[in-house]
Amino acid sequence: MIGIATIVGIVMIAKTAVTIDSGRAGVLYRTFGGGVVTEEPPLGEGFHIIAPWNKVIIYEVRQQEILENMKVLSSNGLEIELETSAWYQPEWSKLGLLHKEKGERYVSRILQPAIRSATRSVVGRYTPEQLYSTKRDSIQKEIYKETKEIVKSQYIQLNEVLVRDIGLPPTIKDAIERKLKQEQESLEYQFRLEKAKKEAERQRIEAEGKALANKILSASLTEKILQEKGISATLELSKSGNTKVIVIGSGEGGLPVILGNQ
């Protein structure tokens, strides 16, 4: 009898004990008490004791990732292959409602259709060239925004949507790359022209400045001032111990003519 009681006890403990691992949470289902518990927080990590006739449904509540590969149409009807990924997690406080209304397959029932719908809507507003080059970041943000709007009332927390790859037909891709290369070469040529124009303008301004300075200097040098400067320079030269000045007459403006200098 003791052995039977022990076995029964072990079975009861096994049925009433629930251990929830890290990063997970449990939704309690009361068989005789209204089914899924939605008015109470979910069961957190650790060890829990429940009635043997109840059960616990365990969910991953950490951030998870889902990959989506799809074919969508651009604004001009060209088929585009798009690879996206979404980071998501269930809303912890509403885990009971998520289980009751959406179920354990909420990703395939709610999130994936929302991502596909938002992606088709956004990509359909852009040309292949915009998708491939200039608008990739904008497209990514728009897909995230529209997907989040769809799932915001579905007890799903959407953290990010990433556009990982955009696939175009080879002929279209080559044409876009040639056009981008030509545009880059044109921009480079315009830059060189602008740089040459600025250098020419700098040289013109510098030349005008020098010409103006020379004009002002010429206007200020009268004959009398030049004569005084010549006399002053001659006097300074005569004071030098290594200089011999022999005056044999007068030069232009009445200045002495220097014949010897050692």
Rank of each mutant, 00 (worst) to 15 (best):
I4H: 04
I7G: 08
I7H: 03
V8A: 14
G23V: 11
A25Q: 07
V37L: 02
P41T: 10
G44K: 05
G46A: 03
N54L: 05
V61G: 02
R62D: 15
Q63S: 11
Q63R: 10
I66K: 04
N69H: 09
N69P: 00
V72R: 03
S74D: 12
S74N: 09
I80Q: 04
L82K: 03
S85T: 14
A86K: 07
P90M: 04
P90Q: 05
W92T: 12
S93P: 01
L95H: 03
K102Y: 12
K102T: 06
G103W: 03
G103V: 07
R105E: 15
V107K: 03
V107R: 02
V107D: 08
S108Y: 07
R109E: 12
L111D: 10
L111I: 09
Q112S: 08
R120S: 14
R120T: 09
S121P: 04
S121N: 12
V122H: 02
T127E: 12
T127K: 07
Q130W: 01
Q130P: 04
Y132L: 15
K135H: 12
D137V: 11
D137K: 13
K141V: 04
Y144K: 13
E146C: 00
K148R: 13
E149K: 11
Q154H: 10
Y155H: 15
E160P: 00
V163E: 07
V163Q: 06
D165C: 01
I166V: 15
P170K: 10
K173C: 06
A175H: 02
A175M: 08
K179D: 14
Q184T: 13
E185A: 13
L187A: 15
E188K: 14
E188C: 01
R192F: 06
L193W: 01
K195F: 01
A196N: 11
K197Q: 14
A200N: 08
Q203M: 11
Q203V: 10
I205Y: 03
E206T: 11
N214D: 14
N214W: 06
L217W: 07
S218C: 01
A219Y: 05
S220N: 12
L221K: 12
K224V: 14
I225R: 15
Q227G: 03
K229H: 11
K229D: 14
G230A: 14
I231C: 01
I231V: 15
S232P: 01
A233G: 01
A233D: 09
S238Q: 12
K239Q: 13
N242I: 10
N242E: 10
V245L: 09
I246S: 04
I246Y: 03
E252W: 01
L255Q: 02
V257P: 00
